[in-house]
């Protein structure tokens, strides 16, 4: 839940990038970090293994300026994607205000995307009594650049059917590696999340 400090007139909002391992969650944050150096007052924090896989989370605070006199800071987090790290994924979801689900368009990752989304629903429900259907959520179908390679990828229509036929949230094809639609995804989740908490603030 967003933290609203009436004394310092600050609002802190937590957005979590969730999805299967090696899907591009950290790459999204790295691109945002590189693009918006002016708005980012602190270094990106990454807790990772020797092999550069996220071990606990990545963290990137991001100033979006003043809204009705309140300084709004968006705190971006990623979760570790590997299956065995579900305990830490649950911890990172604590107090979440908005979620970007980063799915991998590679054909061989199809099952992992679906499993990860199902686990997100369960983790929110069992640990925090949160309903994924009521949280601001944006889908990102990442690695669309692989269309030009020999690696088989799924078309967005299949991704939509697998992951978004019931949720029906905004979805974007993206290429986190070269920044394609990374900022569009970020802007969408920020606007959805701000809209959902505006009753609390204003």
């Amino acid at each position: 839940m967003a933290l609203i400090n009436v004394k310092t007139r600050e609002v802190q909002i937590k957005i979590v990038y969730y999805g299967p391992g090696r899907g591009g969650k950290t790459t999204n944050l790295e691109y945002i970090n590189k693009t918006y150096t002016k708005q980012i007052k602190t270094k990106m924090v990454s807790l990772k293994t020797e092999g550069d896989r996220t071990l606990f989370f990545d963290f990137l605070p991001f100033d979006v300026g003043k809204i009705k006199g309140f300084d709004v800071t968006i705190q971006l987090y990623t979760v570790p994607g590997q299956v065995k790290y579900n305990a830490t994924r649950k911890l990172v979801l604590r107090g979440v205000d908005g979620i970007v689900f980063v799915a991998d368009v590679q054909k061989e990752q199809r099952k992992k995307n679906i499993e990860s989304l199902n686990q997100l629903y369960e983790n929110l429900d069992t640990t925090y009594k949160l309903d994924l259907f009521k949280l601001p959520l944006v889908m990102q179908y990442n690695k669309i650049d692989l269309k030009n390679s020999t690696i088989p990828v799924l078309p967005s229509s299949i991704m939509q059917k697998d992951l978004n036929s019931v949720l029906q949230v905004p979805a974007f094809e993206a290429s986190a590696l070269n920044g394609g639609n990374v900022i569009v995804t970020l802007k969408k989740i920020i606007s959805s999340t701000l809209a959902s908490i505006q009753d609390q603030i204003f």
Binding site: K43, F56, F57, R94
Partner: peptide, 16 residues
């Protein structure tokens, strides 16, 4: 002290 990053890490540490 970078209190923003520190708070995020501290909460994670405590949660673990």
């Amino acid at each position: 002290l970078d209190s923003t990053a520190f708070a995020a890490l501290a909460a994670g540490n405590y949660a673990a």
